[in-house]
Amino acid sequence: MTKEAPVISCKNVWKIFGDNPEAYLKKMPAGHTFDDIRADGYIAGVKDVSIEVARGEMLVIMGLSGSGKSTLVRCFSRLHDITGGTIEVEGQDVMALSEKELIDLRRNKMGMVFQSFGLLPHRTVLDNVAFPLEMRGQDRHTRRERALEVIKLVGLEGREDYFPRELSGGQQQRVGIARSLAIEPDIWFLDEPFSALDPLIRREMQDEFLRLQEMLGKTIVFITHDFDEALRLADRIAIMKDGAVEQCDTPDQIVMNPATEYVRKFTEDIDKARVVHASILAEADAKGEGEPVAAAATIHDLAGALIADARDYIPVQDGDAIIGALSRQKALKVLVGAN
């Protein structure tokens, strides 16, 4: 597999809030912790983060409120100017862009969905969705056509003339999503898009979101503080604490091999059997016999078979190839939640 250049790549990114943060960062001794920085009267919003997002990947950034996840995403789109390090989007250093280039980048490549929707209260659904197109100077007719198309995509047909306050929370966020998709962005930022919604609606919107993603296949950076949501959606999860990324890995790895104590605590109450796939438990040097199980199946999917089966090692098959065998004992441990 040849590795394509990442869509977003950031190296040693710092974002410090306070008076003259650049000067502070320069003279700050290495190894200063979040609390040390705070003692100096500064807040480390993003602390030495290096992360890459591959094309078509869905990276979920999660952490508690104040952990810096929203700040990091706003650095990607340069809603915040970073204090140190570099961020490249599609190979361009975003900090080096002129105002015009930045506007062009946002007009053509980026879409963003906000937690409290960020809809313009004085515009109808149609005008809100068409807003980015209008900014770009598209004529009335084409932007109306395109806006109607996306409105249909998010299932708000017939409500084009409504004003945001006449819609429910879930519907408002559909407008937010439609607006962010109107320009057909390559990169899609979602900042806790479903946090302000009721649990039932949230579930519905997540399904809707997955459906859209399946159709569109965008590069996505998704922020959430809800671990279940992260596990449901993510290709990879980055867990943040005090501005720094604690671990960035696939859901299986995060659950099975937490890098730090903080991450372990996070994963403690998770039903691991629903997250962990057979592939991750497959030991390449182990040999199993008999009927193989699919690599993509979760332990939860295999629960019945695992309990009924008598074999110690069960072969795991990915596509046509056998990639190894999983220990039934270990799999059962995952199933009952013992570590």
Binding site: R74, S77, L79, I103, D104, L105, R106, R107, N108, M110, G111, M112, F114, Q115, S116, F117, G118, L119, L120, F131, P132, M135, R136, G176, R179, S180, F189
Partner: peptide, 12 residues
């Protein structure tokens, strides 16, 4: 957020 939405839409 409204401000950021405006910026992300590429407003001058």
């Amino acid at each position: 957020e409204v401000v950021e939405a405006g910026k992300m839409s590429g407003s001058t």
